[in-house]
Design a protein around this nucleic acid. Structure first.
Lengths: 182, 182
DNA sequence: ATGCACATGTAAGCTGTTACATGATTTC
DNA sequence: GAAATCATGTAACAGCTTACATGTGCAT
């Protein structure tokens, strides 16, 4: 199995919908940051490399009072590679959940410190949860085709399901940790 | 923020319980693979580097009919660094869920292909779920102290919670995708 | 006979992160 | 007046993965 440059496929996914700049790609990824992230410092070089591979084409757009924008468009070859990737089985999802690792070893630190970490996790998940609830309505009005809307709502539903489950588990775990042992 | 070598802390966590070889560390990580993974090819060089930093010491054990084992023990300095890391807030958990990215763009492929990916996910999660159920009993009998047992059970409970939530979401999503649009 | 468990490592290289660099315009 | 947004990139490098290399003993 060759390693896949996942950034490449995320970019192709965005450009498959519409031409966009590296900046636009980053904005899009920020909007789905609860399950996918990208950095500028990775997007720009990968776009360059993709241009060399013939997956995208670049057009520089002059704007007034703003920096020029490099607009990238997907090529037929790019579209082909993108769809080929979409059809492939999902690569196994390798987790590294630091919170759980620390929890496992938390007998070496005060209970309060571990509880604080769990409380921070709850806050984080609640922020995500709120973002998803606000976003759902906007998406319903923006997405036109039925297939796309279904997919978007399913992804949002995933976020809701997982944040709820995580928050519930954090609360339970805090209680268990704070129980007196006797 | 400097980047953390997370492998280092995972290793320290194992060695903090008992002296172990690189092979043992890997075995341990395999047993918690549902939320943490390590490769031999990373463990061995990191162990070497940790020895140079004075976090661990090495002792080579000759065995009959088996390759010699390099047994590593944590030093007081290593223990100190480990606890310092444990106390630090958890680094934000950056996800890259390929399944969700593909789902988001799945209007470009047949519904059946996407459904298959979701079915594979269900199978994967059911395997994990089964593993956790079998493991819980073994852990209850093995772990002695109350604090450690609580932590282990909480981690297992996380696995159960998330796998259940994920399986439920996959099933719902398959149904939604397979509904006729009219 | 085939494969798995035991056991350790090196070499190469991609992926992705952090820090740095620049600067106008808009918003609070 | 400060901060955020728009907009693009380079340099350095840490982290991790993949492929390679080697060999015994036990179980099926």
């Amino acid at each position: 199995m060759a390693k896949m440059n996942r950034t490449k496929y995320a970019i192709l996914g965005v450009l498959n919908e519409r031409p966009a700049s590296g900046y636009d790609v980053k904005k899009f990824c920020d909007s789905i940051a609860y399950f996918w992230n990208e950095n500028y410092s990775h997007i720009y070089p990968v776009l360059k490399q993709m241009e060399e591979e013939g997956l995208v084409t670049k057009k520089t757009e002059q704007t007034e009072g703003r920096p020029p924008r490099n607009i990238f468009s997907i090529t037929p070859g790019g579209r082909e590679e993108f769809v080929k990737w979409l059809m492939l089985p999902v690569e196994p999802h390798i987790l590294r959940a630091e919170l759980l690792l620390k929890l496992l070893f938390s007998n070496n630190i005060p209970v309060d410190n571990m509880v604080e970490k769990l409380e921070n996790k709850i806050e984080e998940q609640m922020r995500i949860r709120e973002y998803l609830d606000n976003g759902a309505e906007e998406i319903k009005s923006r997405i036109k085709t039925e297939r796309k809307l279904k997919a978007w709502l399913a992804v949002i539903q995933w976020g809701r399901t997982i944040t709820d489950a995580t928050i519930g588990w954090c609360e339970e775990t805090i209680q268990v940790l704070q129980e007196d042992d006797e």
